[in-house]
Amino acid sequence: MSDWGKVRLHVVTGKGGTGKSTVASALALALATKGANVLLCEVEGRQGIARMFDVDPLPYEERRLTTGLPDADGGRGVVHGLHIDAEAALLEYLALYYRLGRAGRALDRFGVIEFATTIAPGVRDVLLTGKVYEAVQRNSRNKGAIQYDAVVLDAPPTGRITQFLNVSNELAGLAKVGPMKSQSDTMMTLFRSPQTAVHLVTVLEEMPVQETADGIAELRSADLPVGGVIVNQVRPQDLSSEALSAARAGTLDRSRVEADLTSAGVALDGTSGATLVDGLLAEAADHAERRALEDSQRELVAGLGVPSYELPRLAGGMDLGGLYELAGLLRQQGMA
């Protein structure tokens, strides 16, 4: 049973370096169950989706990427990708709502589109989020377009997410009336509804966890719906608490370590053998120190008052197989 069964727009944000694009991709795979169409969007111009799924750079066009994670009956949905570009979104907006097809492209040639989106950053955000809104709330204006069961947005970082989604406030000083103001107000109805959830990705380090807490507070102050916290890149927890304590204190049984290495066929002759054991004990102490830090940050995450999920650090690096593995873990934990 999914914790977010009523949500159609999953916004994924996080501090840079926490792996939000990886988590967004894995979530899209987890949501694409039998018969479901899921759209994975990005708005930062990095072509992260293309790199994640090892495909050519995406145009401003919805493209089929892959099938989703199999459900309990073996059924799969389909994941589509979309790279949203502000200038292309404005041309589409002019064509859909003002029927400015060729005229809109003429404006683009004269540089008017780039000027409009550069001089007023609020307008750029409205255009980017407007395309996301259109994908969630498809209507007859976009004839023949795919109807999506869920949309996952690989969104800007935590420090900018509230500003990015709070488009009505961003436009307040630019447009008090008119179709763009009306559209932004309509978009805010979706963004503040139970159909939307803003999920935050973090790692178990002090700065990302603090930024996650600050982001949750900012989202709540703007009446934007907070989703879950995904703790990414969690280290393996193979050692017992007693072994970790001994490693931190430097009291691990050296002779036992040497015996284990010898039984595994590792020669410990002379200086090189002693150096090897010293290195292993130092690594154990470092690992134990790191685990203690992670445990303290995990307690802070638990106190944020929102559901949390954990994904491991994958030793082999990230590829499509790794994404499916993470998708399975998200589904097991009830996120999809």
Score class of each variant (00 low, 15 high):
residue 129 T to M: 11
residue 138 R to C: 02
residue 108 D to T: 11
residue 107 L to P: 00
residue 136 V to S: 06
residue 133 Y to P: 05
residue 149 D to M: 02
residue 121 P to S: 14
residue 137 Q to F: 04
residue 139 N to D: 15
residue 103 A to T: 11
residue 120 A to Y: 04
residue 135 A to N: 02
residue 141 R to V: 07
residue 157 P to K: 10
residue 133 Y to K: 12
residue 124 R to S: 14
residue 142 N to R: 12
residue 127 L to H: 07
residue 146 I to R: 10
residue 102 R to P: 06
residue 133 Y to W: 15
residue 117 T to H: 02
residue 133 Y to L: 10
residue 114 E to S: 14
residue 143 K to H: 07
residue 99 R to A: 08
residue 113 I to T: 11
residue 116 A to G: 13
residue 99 R to L: 05
residue 94 L to G: 06
residue 142 N to C: 06
residue 150 A to Y: 05
residue 104 G to Y: 00
residue 124 R to Y: 09
residue 106 A to S: 13
residue 131 K to D: 08
residue 111 G to W: 07
residue 120 A to L: 05
residue 139 N to G: 14
residue 114 E to A: 15
residue 126 V to F: 01
residue 120 A to F: 04
residue 98 Y to N: 03
residue 123 V to E: 08
residue 108 D to E: 15
residue 97 Y to F: 11
residue 91 L to C: 10
residue 98 Y to W: 00
residue 105 R to Y: 03
residue 90 L to Q: 13
residue 108 D to K: 15
residue 149 D to P: 06
residue 111 G to H: 10
residue 121 P to H: 14
residue 139 N to H: 11
residue 157 P to A: 15
residue 147 Q to L: 07
residue 143 K to D: 07
residue 138 R to K: 10
residue 146 I to G: 00
residue 118 T to R: 15
residue 90 L to N: 12
residue 116 A to Q: 11
residue 125 D to R: 12
residue 94 L to H: 02
residue 125 D to C: 02
residue 119 I to A: 15
residue 147 Q to T: 08
residue 105 R to K: 09
residue 126 V to C: 08
residue 126 V to H: 03
